[in-house]
Simulated scan of single mutants.
Amino acid sequence: MQPTDENYWHTIAQRYDLEPGPINLENGYFGRMSRAVLEQYQEHVAFINRSNSVYARQRFEQGENVEIRRQLAELIGAEPEAVALTRCASDALQALIRNYNRLQPGDQVLISDLEYDTVKGAMRWLARHRGVEVIELAHTHPASFDSLVRTYREAFTRYPRLKLLALTYVTHRTGLVMPVEAIATAAREHGVDVILDGAHALGQIEFNLAQLGIAFAGFNLHKWIGAPLTLGFIYIDPTRLADIDPDMGESHYPATDVRARTPYSTPNIPALMTLPLVFQEHRLLGGARAKGARLNYLRDLWVRQVRSLPAIEVLTSDDPRLYCAITAFKFRGQVDQQVMADRLLNEYNLFTVTRSGAAFGSCIRVTPGLATSAAEIGVLVRALTELGALTY
Rank of each mutant, 00 (worst) to 15 (best):
G369T: 11
L85T: 15
L345D: 01
S34M: 02
L167V: 02
A255G: 13
K223G: 00
E19F: 10
G175M: 04
M1I: 07
L72G: 00
Y16N: 12
G388E: 09
Q338L: 14
D319R: 03
A166D: 04
T174W: 01
T367F: 00
G198A: 15
L18F: 02
K291E: 12
S362T: 15
D197G: 07
V134Y: 05
L298K: 10
A341R: 03
K291T: 11
T230Y: 10
Q42R: 15
I12C: 03
P80S: 05
V339Y: 13
Q305V: 06
G191N: 01
D257I: 06
I234H: 12
A371R: 03
Q334W: 11
F219P: 12
A288G: 07
Y392T: 09
F279K: 07
L387F: 01
H44V: 02
F360R: 13
L284N: 09
G378W: 09
L390K: 14
E281Y: 09
L322I: 05
I135N: 08
L85Y: 08
Y323Q: 08
V119R: 10
G77F: 09
L85G: 12
R259S: 12
T266E: 14
E376T: 00
Y264K: 08
W224L: 07
E386F: 03
S251V: 11
Y55P: 00
P160S: 00
E154K: 11
S90V: 15
S362W: 05
A325I: 06
I111T: 15
P270F: 15
L384K: 02
D197R: 05
A13H: 10
D257M: 03
G28D: 06
P142D: 10
D237K: 13
